[in-house]
């Protein structure tokens, strides 16, 4: 991948066309994966729970776009987007959602627990906030091993009042660990609005309490997320310690597929849908690197074909043999 350069003028990243198209494609892959998964779930074809990240693609891609393959991420119950943005194949993603042998975790983990060490994905996580201290530990491991990797924790606004948030970020702060803490603030913790659980106007104010930088970002603006993430990642890689990013965004679906989301007004949903990160980035590309309807069509069609093939792969994959249910308890 071509490394993007930073312009001297505004401190704003100038993405070259190749990189921009790559990031755009990643967003489209997430969007189409999530939409297809939602349809399959509604048809009763996928077991368990499904938490969709449609609408939040720019956070996953903006942050993971600033990372190397050997950097680590911890993710959340709403983790498909992060993992795809980190480079996951849709075939093994779908296979995991179907609970098949070919899934990333052989169907032992499922939607909420996808892990892949090769991609640096230390795990989606069904426990809110739990990935934060784990990412701090990955940062500690990086520091002790003396590599220049970075560990990123994604978490939602629901996690910010857990003990794990406080303990994990504080530990990373006092030890200058190479971590980036990314709050994907979609304004609701399940059904509870953010203003009900937070007395301050922005989570980033808390960064000061830990003695680390905090940055509030428009989470539906891919370039803004990418810029902020690059600053935080560079800082971490340089051994200067962690950063807290708050990316304001919105999930189009409810907390889970099937949640009618009666707790939020329809006008609010429409407001945010009008700020869809994908067309916004298309507009940016048109202005800065060149992008037209034919480009758009090519990406969407290629991804649609990938999604269809991935679903077919998953559906044709064998069920995991039952012995596997007892195989992996211990090393």
């Amino acid at each position: 991948m071509t490394r993007p350069k930073r312009s001297d003028k505004k401190g704003e990243t100038r993405l070259d066309r190749t990189t921009a198209l790559d990031l755009y494609t990643r967003m489209v892959r997430i969007r189409q994966f999530e939409e297809k998964a939602a349809r399959l779930y509604e048809q009763g074809l996928l077991p368990g729970f499904l938490h969709s990240s449609v609408g939040q693609e720019a956070v996953a891609v903006g942050v993971c776009g600033a990372l190397r393959k050997d950097d680590y991420i911890t993710s959340t119950h709403r983790g498909h987007g992060h993992i795809i943005a980190k480079g996951a194949g849709l075939d093994r993603m779908f296979a995991e959602l179907y609970g098949r042998e070919t899934g990333f975790n052989r169907g032992l983990g499922g939607s909420m627990h996808i892990m892949d060490f090769e991609l640096g994905v230390l795990g989606a996580n069904g426990i809110v906030g739990a990935g934060i201290p784990i990412a701090a530990g990955a940062g500690l491991s990086i520091q002790l091993r003396g590599t220049d990797q970075v560990a990123v924790a994604f978490f939602g606004d629901g996690a910010i009042n857990t003990g794990a948030f406080h303990e994990g970020i504080n530990l990373a702060a006092i030890w200058d660990l190479p971590c980036v803490f990314v709050c994907e603030n979609n304004l609701y913790a399940e059904s509870t609005p953010q203003e009900y659980v937070l007395r301050i106007p922005a989570l980033t104010e808390r960064a000061r309490g830990y003695g680390i930088p905090g940055e509030l970002v428009d989470g539906n603006d891919l370039v803004a997320v990418y810029d902020a993430a690059r600053r935080a990642v560079e800082r971490a890689r340089a051994g200067k310690g962690p950063t807290l990013l708050e990316c304001r965004t919105y999930r189009w679906y409810g907390h889970y597929i099937g949640d009618p989301a009666v707790y939020r007004p329809q006008e609010e949903v429409e407001y945010w849908k009008a700020r869809d990160p994908i067309p916004r980035f298309e507009a940016w590309m048109k202005e800065h690197v060149g992008f037209d309807d034919a480009d758009r069509e090519a990406v969407w069609q290629a991804v649609a074909a990938e999604v269809e093939a991935a679903v077919k792969f998953a559906e044709e994959s064998p069920l995991t043999p039952v012995e596997a249910a007892l195989d992996c308890v211990y090393s």
Partner: peptide, 25 residues
């Protein structure tokens, strides 16, 4: 650096242990 005092943060002590353990320590 190898014998590290921590804050009184049991979640972070175990959690960071988990994170370090799965990444090679």
């Amino acid at each position: 650096h190898r014998v590290r005092n921590t804050p009184i943060s049991e979640i972070a002590i175990v959690g960071a242990g988990v994170g370090a353990a799965i990444t090679g320590m």
